[in-house]
């Protein structure tokens, strides 16, 4: 144990600590290189583009315009409607997915028979190609060619996609169906790290199932829950495929990602589109920041006591 003491103090670090540092960087290096290689230039380029007026169809009209693209975006009511849509869809779908995912994780963990079947079938929705799943849901809810309207209690000609809120409802349902498995998987992995002995001890102490869940399960699963929530929220905020296939953003169901797509791809107005992307990025950063600060996702913590 002697080698662990920091004999160097403020004047320097011990050999062991230095070796640890080098090892740490070396282990991280391949991953870091893989991530930067692809994104350093494109992200930097996108930021630079957002400060210019660039439209591929009018190649002669380029030039630096400072923050005017951002001004155009932030002063447009369309942008704020889309932000509202995105926030609503994100909050509702992530909340439902967390609750459902937890229930599914518990079932997958504790099922007394057919575990393989349950675990596999829960994950299948996540494995279906996204555009196909969205199209299948769209087709199912279409008044003329779908089956939903032929169910009892539902009007035969209810136009699900003709009204903003029912369309958003179907979009959320499709998203929840598709990505609850993601949550369930991460939560299940978290569940498996809890030692059964704790439950036995609690039972002996007279705790019932609900108390065991809230006092033992939830607190011990906190890291897994936070990782799942963080990534799912960040992904949900950038929702694109499902909305595009169901309504293409009509009836005020457009999300910020569809807005970005329209500017960059349809209008080839790269300056404006890059500004939209950077703004999306900033908002997503704020969300991540909130997670880290408020909910205490402390990932970089090392050994206790250092």
């Amino acid at each position: 144990m002697a080698g662990r003491l920091r004999l160097g103090g403020r004047r320097g670090v011990t050999d062991r600590a230095r070796e640890e540092r080098r090892l740490g960087w070396m282990l991280c290096a391949p991953a870091v290189i893989a991530m930067l290689l692809v994104t350093a230039y494109p992200i930097g380029y996108a930021v630079v583009l957002s400060l210019q007026h660039i439209d591929l169809r009018f190649p002669d009209q380029g030039g630096w315009v400072g923050l005017s693209n951002y001004q155009t975006v932030l002063s447009s009511p369309l942008w704020w409607t889309d932000v509202l849509n995105t926030v609503i869809i994100t909050i509702i779908s992530v909340t439902i997915e967390l609750a459902l995912g937890m229930a599914l994780a518990l079932i997958m963990h504790r099922a007394i028979f057919g575990r393989g079947l349950v675990r596999t079938s829960v994950l299948i929705p996540y494995g279906i190609v996204t555009v196909v799943a969205a199209f299948a849901w769209f087709f199912a809810f279409d008044p003329s060619s779908g089956f939903v309207n032929q169910l009892p209690l539902i009007a035969d000609d209810k136009a699900w996609f003709g009204d903003r809120w029912s369309a958003i409802g179907v979009i959320i349902a499709a998203e929840v169906w598709k990505t609850t498995p993601f949550m369930a998987l991460l939560l299940l992995a978290g569940l498996t790290t809890i030692d059964d002995g704790l439950y036995e001890a609690a039972k002996v102490d007279g705790a019932n199932a609900v108390q065991r869940f809230f006092r033992i399960t939830l607190p011990l699963m906190k890291p897994a829950i936070l990782v799942a929530l963080l990534f799912r929220t960040l992904d949900a905020f950038r929702i694109f495929d499902t909305i595009f296939i169901m309504t293409r953003g009509a009836q005020n169901t457009e999300s910020v990602s569809i807005l970005g797509y329209n500017q960059i791809i349809s209008r080839t107005n790269l300056g404006l589109g890059s500004a939209v992307s950077v703004l999306i990025f900033i908002m997503v950063l704020l969300i991540a920041f909130a997670f880290v600060r408020l909910l205490g996702v402390r990932m970089a913590e090392g050994r206790p006591g250092t």
Binding site: P143, S144, F161, G162
Partner: peptide, 10 residues
């Protein structure tokens, strides 16, 4: 009823 999402195929 599906006029707002109708295309050539539907």
């Amino acid at each position: 009823p599906n006029i707002s999402t109708s295309d050539e195929d539907t």
